[in-house]
Structures are given as structure tokens and as C-alpha cells.
Design a protein around this nucleic acid. Structure first.
Length: 659
DNA sequence: ATCCGGATAGTTTTT
DNA sequence: CTATCCGGAT
């Protein structure tokens, strides 16, 4: 079973005598260790899959893990195995134990735009930046398990003071809507387990072995949850890499690595240093770079892939020249080495850098894909539909009620909703419930009340069907009944409406399929969508150069990587220089460098526009920190090398051939 | 509802 | 400086 692992990997997969921390360097096969450990637990140790949970941070990682376990354990049913994100596990816990925290099992999960809306309402019209700051502060407190009373003491500036003041009202509003935010999905399980030992025991008994991926990204609340679930037995394996901790700014606490050691003195620490991804030249540079950080655990990556080519460091005059150079180089390189566009990635510090690159790639007729961007579920047309689903699940969800009842327009306007809202507020009930009461008739015209009640009756009818009939049929009928398609084409220009409508049909088709696969009703299917960020319709076979921020590149790899804008002020970013956060920036650089399998090209500009004026900028200190021995710095003024000349000729030929 | 002008910020982002 | 966002005015 474990024969395909190297020695430390095998040790990590087999070790079951207590808590285990696997320090898995970049490209060292951490997913392999996790999947093999699961297989080992089930096949060799006879453990039930239902008692094992593997926890990841992203849906993508969860999905990959699931596929790889399935592949590894063909012939074993792993249906009951838990492979999900922290938040998905949180949802399961809170849904099952909902009444312990005063929620109904079908509570709504609000996304960040819903939350902005709530904060805007309870703060009584602050500007957008302030709203964001407040949301940020409250989220931070929740992730650090700081209750409202304590938050007040911690408030240091105007915004955090405002946030602390609004925190209780914010919580109250969420509860009134029978809703939770993402942070609650971690915080509430912790609260449940701390206050209800019997619930904790139930879950400890169910999840007897835990595997945590990307452990360095955990925040306080997540660590607490892990510790509660693992209990005194400490039956868990945490896999992570302190050198790839790049999310401190959103609450991830590398200190959790230290805590693991102090909380579990018997912690077994296993290092994975053999890399299966990159050439030794790249690894040496990465090792040399990261040695500049003060470190908890020393690691030295090595591989059997030979020395490889030196890292190419190229200076350009301007960001425009840089973008053009990279595009030209990829074009030539692909032609010369008969590679595919998908073998290349261009990585950068900030999203704005993608613009020039996109332009240059278009000029060179190079196809590309940008990772990140707006998630499918954030699109307005999809939110319109999901609000109907939220309302079907939870009629107390006033945000969903308002959006659904006004989209498409059905003659219910602000005045009617305000009257309904006032009545509901006075009686401490939801808008939906208020519409059903007799008393509300005195606050609005019968014509308006009639429309509201008609809408509610419609929702009730759909809800009845959503609990019984196949998901696909009900959602299809619902979308048709509300006249969404017609409304789209009346309110957008044709092109836009077509795109939006196609997104809606994609969505409804996806719900259909999902419902069919799991043999579930619309109600049951709808419960699972809040946490899914993308429809997995990423075409793996699309041949395009990958554009990604360094953050988004973590966990991915490409044969040829271009790291652009490697300048003081950008990478490391100026604000990180100012705030003494160079080490995190260095880890970001480290992540970028270790994405490359065969070749790495680093570019920097001599001049860059900042705040309007063109400034002379310096190459990043991180370039020097890679070690001169790993680098090749072609002199811009020297005659082009034979290789370069050939490449250029090849590119030229290709362009001529195409046009 | 829609358009225009002024103000404002211009890291990283998943769930 | 410039893109975006918000608010005010039509």
C-alpha cells in the first residue's frame, strides 16, 4: 500500500501513535501522504471511512483530494469518508446542532455582499471604505474568537471603534434572519463544543481521525476547532509548510505551528524535503532565498531532476516593455520547444499587473486564462436565483426575501417594503411572517398587500414542491414562473442578457444534475450550494498561458514560470516594507519560485508609474537573495545570444505563417 | 432609471 | 494619473 512513498512520506503515513505534524516542503507530495494515510487507516488498520475526516481550505483542494483517494482505494466504498473544507465541516456541525445555538437547521449562509448590506443598514450610511473596514474588523474578531464585549476594549482607531459598537447589533441582525456568516461556521462549532460536552463527544466519536491540509493557513478559531475535535487523544495529522504561509493578513496564524508543539508535547514532526517538481537550480535558489527568514523548522529541498537551467533575470525599461518581452518570449519558446501555452504561467504580486500582460498577450495572439476574478456565485443573475433558494430554505431570511420579491419587478416597491418592514420590526418577526399576519393590512393598501401575499403564496407553493419533487424540475419551473428570462432581456442589452441567461441555465442545469446524482430534492440540494465557489467548469484541456497572482498560484505548478515586477515596492510590496512584514513577502516570492518545474524567468522594470509620476525603481532584494550562482543575467546591451536570435526568428516565422 | 462629474484610492482573497 | 465608485441631478 505504502510502497510508492519515500521513507519520510511512508513514516508520516504510518505514524499513528499520536499527533503528527508533517512539514511538507513545496512539491514534496503532501497530498500523496494524506491520501495514502487515509488508505492505510482503512485498508491496513481496518478503520471505517466514516470515522475519518480530511480537512482542506478550498473546495478545489477538497475535490482533488477526494478524487485521488477514490483512485487509490478502488474497490473500497469511501462514500462515508469526510473530505471537505473547514467551512463545510462547520456547516454540517451547526446544522446538526443548530438548536444548541438558537438556530433552525435550515439557516442561511450570507456572503460578503449580504454582510456589507447589513452593516450599511445598521451603521446608517457610512462610506464604502468604512463599511469594508467594519466588516474586516468584525471578521477578524470572530476568527480570533473575540466576543463583542472584549472587542470594545481592543478597538484602537475610529473604524475598529465603530465596528466594536456595531458588533452586537450585527450579531442580532444575523440571528433575526436565522443567518450566519462564513466566520460563524467555524466559531459556532467551537461555541457548541465548549458549552455542550455531549455534542462534542458525539462528534469526537464520529470523527476519530483528522487530517488537516495546509495547516499553516489555519486561524485561531480553526485551530481551536481542531483541538476540540481531536481531544486528548490527539488523533490527527496536520500537514503544512511554514515557508508557504502567505495569509497572515487574513487571520492565518503561523503561531499555530508553535502552539501545536506546546499543546501536544508528544507531537511527532516529520519533514518532507524531497521535491518531485523542480530542477535543483530552482530549489537551490528557493532554499537560499528562504534561509533569510528566521525559521522554526529548517528545511532543505532537493530533487532528482538534475541541475537544470539557470534562473533568467531580465531587466526591462517599463512595465509595457516587460509585458511585451514576456509575451514575445513565450511565443518564441513555445515555437522552438513545441510546447503548449498551458505549460507557461505568468505570476505577479497585484491584480492590476495583469492588465498590461493581457494586452501584450492579445497583441501576440497568445491565448490565456486568468485565475481568480469574480466567482460564479457572486454574479448578480446567479444571486438573484440563489436568493429564491435561500427563501425556500429559510423564510426568515429577510435579505433574500427583499431581493426575491423585487427581482424581477412585480409591482412591489420601496414604500410597500418599508411598511412591511416597520410592522415586522415592531413585532420582531421576519418580513415573510409579517406578510401572513392580519394586522399588517392596516399599514398598507390592500392592492399592495395582495401582491405581497401572492408572492408569498408562490414561494409556499414552490417550497411544497421543492420538498418532494426532483430538484431539476422544480428549479426549472420556478425560473420560468418568475419570468426571469423575459425580465433579463427587457432590462439588459441583448448580448448581456444572453450571457446572463446562459449563466442561469448553467446554474439550473448544474442543480438538476447535482440533485439527480445524489437523488435529492431541491431543498436538500440547495443547502449545499452556499459554500461552493465555482462551478467546476474549468476546462482542463483549454490551452492558454496561465495568469495568476502569487497568492492564487499556491499549490499549482508549470514547466515554465515567469515572475514579473520583481521590484522593491512591488515585491516586497511597499506597505509590507513599511509594516515590517518582509518575511511574508519573502515567502510569497518563495511560493512563486517553487511553482516552476523546469525554467524560471524573473523580470523587473527600471521605471514604473506610481501615483501618477514615472519613478525609477530598484530590482527586488529577493533577486539577490536567490544567490548569484543560480542566476543568469543577460546584458541588455550585449548582442543577443544565439538562442535568443533563434527564438526571435522562430517567432517571426510563426507570425508570418499565421497571417 | 441613467448619466455625468467629482472624489478617492491604487496588495494579496477563500469560504 | 486613472479607473472606479458613489451620489446627485435630470
Amino acid at each position: 500500500m505504502l510502497s510508492k512513498l519515500n521513507a519520510p512520506q511512508r513514516e508520516a503515513a504510518k505514524y499513528l501513535d499520536g499527533p503528527c505534524l508533517v512539514l511538507a516542503g513545496a512539491g514534496s507530495g503532501k497530498t500523496r501522504v494524506i491520501t495514502h494515510k487515509i488508505a492505510h487507516l482503512v485498508i491496513t488498520c481496518g478503520m471505517e471511512p466514516r470515522n475519518i475526516a480530511a480537512i482542506t481550505f478550498t473546495n478545489k483542494a477538497a475535490k482533488e483530494m477526494q478524487e485521488r483517494v477514490a483512485q487509490l482505494m478502488q474497490g473500497h466504498s469511501i462514500k462515508a469518508l469526510t473530505v471537505c473544507t473547514f467551512h463545510a465541516l462547520g456547516v454540517r456541525i451547526v446544522r446538526q446542532e443548530a438548536k444548541l445555538v438558537g438556530l433552525k437547521p435550515q439557516f442561511s449562509i450570507l456572503d460578503s455582499s449580504d454582510i456589507m448590506q447589513i452593516i450599511a443598514e445598521i451603521s446608517g450610511g457610512a462610506d464604502k471604505a468604512t463599511l469594508k473596514g467594519i466588516q474586516w474588523a468584525i471578521s477578524g474578531w470572530k476568527n480570533a474568537l473575540i466576543p463583542p464585549q472584549e472587542a470594545e476594549k481592543l478597538a484602537s482607531d475610529e473604524i475598529t471603534a465603530a465596528a466594536a459598537k456595531l458588533y452586537p447589533a450585527y450579531e442580532k441582525t444575523l440571528r433575526a434572519y436565522q443567518a450566519v456568516d462564513f466566520d460563524d461556521l467555524i466559531r459556532l462549532p467551537v461555541e457548541i463544543f465548549e458549552n455542550h460536552p455531549e455534542a462534542l463527544e458525539r462528534w469526537q466519536n464520529k470523527l476519530r481521525y483528522l487530517l488537516v491540509d495546509e495547516y499553516q493557513d489555519t486561524n485561531r478559531a480553526q485551530y481551536k476547532l481542531l483541538r476540540l475535535l481531536a481531544g486528548v487523544r490527539g488523533a490527527f495529522t496536520a500537514v503544512g509548510d511554514d515557508d508557504q504561509a502567505i495569509y497572515a493578513w487574513r487571520g492565518a496564524d503561523v503561531e499555530n505551528l508553535n502552539l501545536l508543539q506546546s499543546d501536544y508535547p508528544k507531537l511527532k514532526v516529520i519533514k518532507l524535503e524531497q521535491n518531485y517538481r523542480s530542477t535543483n537550480r530552482i530549489l537551490t535558489a528557493a532554499n537560499t532565498l528562504i534561509a533569510n527568514n528566521t525559521k522554526l523548522f529548517e528545511k532543505t529541498l532537493w530533487s532528482e531532476h538534475g541541475m537544470g537551467d539557470p534562473i533568467r533575470v531580465v531587466m526591462q525599461r517599463s512595465p509595457e516593455a516587460e509585458a511585451d518581452w514576456v509575451a514575445a518570449r513565450i511565443s518564441a519558446h513555445r515555437f522552438e520547444f513545441k510546447t503548449h501555452y498551458r505549460d507557461y504561467a505568468i505570476l505577479y504580486r497585484g491584480n492590476h499587473q495583469a492588465r498590461l500582460i493581457e494586452q501584450a498577450l492579445r497583441n501576440h495572439k497568445i491565448s490565456y486564462v486568468i485565475s481568480g476574478g469574480q466567482s460564479f456565485f457572486d454574479r448578480p443573475e446567479i444571486k438573484d436565483i440563489t436568493c429564491y433558494l435561500r427563501l425556500l430554505l429559510n423564510s426568515d431570511d429577510d435579505l433574500a426575501f427583499i431581493r426575491a420579491i423585487t427581482t424581477p419587478k412585480r409591482g412591489i416597491g420601496a414604500a410597500t417594503l418599508e411598511a412591511l418592514g416597520n410592522y415586522a420590526g415592531a413585532r420582531h418577526i421576519s418580513l415573510f411572517a409579517a406578510a401572513h399576519e392580519e394586522g399588517v393590512a392596516q399599514h398598507m393598501s390592500s392592492r399592495h398587500l395582495e401582491s405581497v401575499r401572492e408572492f408569498c403564496a408562490f414561494i409556499n407553493r414552490i417550497e411544497y414542491r421543492a420538498n418532494r419533487e426532483p430538484a431539476g424540475q422544480v428549479i426549472h419551473d420556478m425560473i420560468r414562473a418568475i419570468g426571469y428570462e423575459t425580465w433579463l432581456f427587457e432590462n439588459c442589452d441583448t448580448r448581456e442578457a444572453e450571457t446572463k441567461w446562459s449563466n442561469v441555465t448553467d446554474f439550473s442545469g448544474w442543480i438538476s444534475r447535482k440533485g439527480e446524482e445524489d437523488g435529492k430534492t431541491l431543498i436538500e440540494t440547495a443547502q449545499t450550494i452556499a459554500l461552493i465557489s465555482m462551478l467546476d467548469k474549468e476546462d482542463d484541456d483549454f490551452d492558454g498561458v496561465q495568469l495568476a497572482t502569487l497568492h492564487a498560484s499556491k499549490g499549482l505548478e508549470w514547466p515554465h514560470v515567469f515572475l514579473i515586477g520583481v521590484e522593491e515596492g512591488l515585491l516586497p510590496h511597499q506597505s509590507s516594507i513599511d509594516n515590517d512584514q518582509i518575511e511574508e513577502e519573502r515567502r510569497l516570492m518563495y511560493v512563486g519560485v517553487t511553482r516552476a518545474q523546469r525554467s524560471l524567468t524573473i523580470t523587473a522594470c527600471e521605471k514604473r508609474k506610481a501615483a501618477g509620476e514615472v519613478r525609477t525603481v530598484e530590482a527586488s532584494r529577493f533577486i539577490d537573495e536567490l544567490g548569484e550562482g543560480s542566476l543568469h543575467r543577460p546584458d541588455r546591451n550585449a548582442p543577443a545570444s544565439r538562442e535568443d536570435a533563434q527564438a526571435r526568428l522562430a517567432a517571426l516565422r510563426e507570425m508570418l505563417g499565421r497571417s
